[in-house]
Simulated assay, not measured.
Amino acid sequence: MKILSLNMSGWGNTAKRRRLSSLIQSGVFEMCLLQETKRSDFDDFMIQNLWGNYNVDWLTKESTGKRNLWSELLDFKLNNEKGEWVLGGDFNAILKVDERKGCNGGGLRNEREEFGLFVDLVELSDIPVVGKNFSWFSADSKSMSRIDHFLLSEGFIDKGGISGQWIGNHDISDHCPIWLLCSNLDWGPKPFKFNNCWTRHLEFNSFVTNLWRNLNINGKKAFVIKEKLKLLKEGLKV
């Protein structure tokens, strides 16, 4: 599935929407996630004109603030059957220190840790980025951040053949559009994903130590480590 996400920074004029419509149709996207349109009313004509044809379903959701949204999503996950997840958009938060440049603020570290904890708890992955390093730029380009993300469940990555997320050029907003890259090519083994919340479990250290010691794998060192991590990953999932 080809999915596009963009913080529009306002619905804008006809020229701006025409540029967005051209981007949507050029990529043959099957889904488009728009944020901060700064509009409360939409109708079929507006969306169909943007999409380029009548065969489109759409819905809107009022902004509730990022922390409220994270809480709502976590509650939804905990109270519903297990399924595959795709979260995309402007989270207004980063996961790593090097995803922000030229921005200062005393609460940024706490915000980063809080966002990282949310990602761990919903068991999603921030897949590798291609294109640019940042998705938002200030007017003078002295400040920049990667606050737009796609967060995916492992099953969706496998089934969709997802190989990464692309950050495009920004010309109609101070945010860049981002979209998923889908490919059936074999990119090698997926990286071992470690959830920081595991370490808070009282039996985590002893469980990992005992499991690692009892894994008998023969071969070259690199092969042994790779196979042990694979089995450790399966053990942590149980």
Rank of each mutant, 00 (worst) to 15 (best):
N92Y: 03
E154L: 09
G106I: 09
N80Q: 09
C32P: 01
E154I: 06
S143M: 14
N79R: 15
I167L: 07
K2N: 05
E30P: 07
R112T: 02
M144G: 01
N53E: 01
N195F: 15
S22I: 06
I3M: 11
G131S: 02
S141Y: 13
N133C: 06
T14M: 13
N53W: 00
D43S: 03
K96W: 08
F137N: 15
G235F: 08
S173M: 00
G116I: 00
G12I: 03
F42I: 01
R112K: 13
S63A: 06
W11A: 08
V97M: 07
N205H: 11
G10S: 00
L20M: 01
I3V: 15
K230D: 10
W136F: 03
K61L: 12
G89W: 03
E30T: 15
L229K: 00
I147W: 02
S163Q: 13
F194D: 02
C182M: 09
D126P: 12
V208A: 03
F134Q: 12
L33I: 15
K77R: 14
W85S: 07
L185Q: 15
E234W: 06
G131L: 02
E114Y: 11
N205V: 13
R100S: 01
K16F: 02
D148I: 05
K193R: 14
L20K: 00
G219Q: 01
Q35E: 13
E113T: 09
G161Q: 01
P191Q: 01
V238D: 14
C103K: 13
N92P: 04
S22F: 10
V86S: 02
W212G: 00
